[in-house]
Amino acid sequence: MSTVRVVHYLNQFFAGVGGEEKAGEGPRVQEGAVGPGLALQRALGEAGEVVATVSCGDNFISEQPEQAIEQVLEFVSKYRPDLVVAGPAFNAGRYGLACGQVCVAVQERLQVPTVTGMYPDNPGVEVYRSRVYIVPTGASAATMAATLERMAALGLKLARKERLGLPAEEGYLARGLRFTERADRPAAARAVDMLVKRLRGEPFQTERPLPQYDRVAAPAPLKDLSKATVAVVSSGGVVPIGNPDRMESTFATKWLQYSLAGVDDLTGEAWQSVHGGYDTTLANEDPDRVVPIDVLREFEAQGAVGRIFDRYYVTVGSGASTTTAKRFGQEIGRELVAAGVDAVIYTAT
């Protein structure tokens, strides 16, 4: 195995440029290892070589992130590294965020693996842990040498594309990615063991920690519905009969839009639900039950609603990941905002 080429990212302080008074300095590059890089080189031994050190002032990168990242990437790519090591940043907030930002950019745009180190309370951990391998550190630089040893060991594995073990075994903060594996015993035996432990009041370990999802804050109410343009969006799977655009019944990969021009009523002759997660009998008898165009047109005629937007957006919610759902929502939302829509009636099933 050839020597792994490593580029090290540091802030202005650790790169020896200066303290807080130099935090506004832009990116620079130096050949070889600098400052903590010397300990990193010792930790890498003969397996790797720190070929360059790229640094940037913490304020500069936080205030002009795009410019800073472009420059950092240009320096990094010149040295054709197999690995980029950033920090460790310990409990320094701006530095932690910078390390995370550099790692994500290097991974996504240069396709080079990265590793960084931070104190678990560093704000960079919360922002970047799902995308970057972060070695947990102490709060201060006192643990520098030991931290760099762990970062070097992990980094070498990543550079060699070796399969990583569990977070606790390899010494990184769990990224939250879950993979199917064979356990030592059947699920039935594991479940009953867990139950017996619970009945005896003994400690037990769940195999599936509970999540924390984003909460979307409700927007301010409309000032005057009678002047508002209202769009209809649905994940109930109501599409034109025959499903001409082949909306999937589950695990949908797309959203579709259909014109509502001249449509006052969604009839079972012209529309159907292809949603694969609920009993569609009633929806197919009268698709207005899922997408209430008939009633909305009445409100529009009475002047209770200003105008019904003339395009209707639809997908199928069954089996959707929140990641896909979020993307669909943002894409549809952009179109609606651009079209001057004031409010959305969103129906699910």
Binding site: R178, R190, L195, L210
Partner: peptide, 22 residues
């Protein structure tokens, strides 16, 4: 399903669900 940090695949859960076998 899914198993990413953004979507660990719970459509609904309660805080009491603290003992799960996958």
């Amino acid at each position: 399903v899914y198993g990413t940090p953004e979507d660990p695949g719970f459509v609904f859960y309660v805080p009491e669900a603290e003992a799960i076998v996958s």
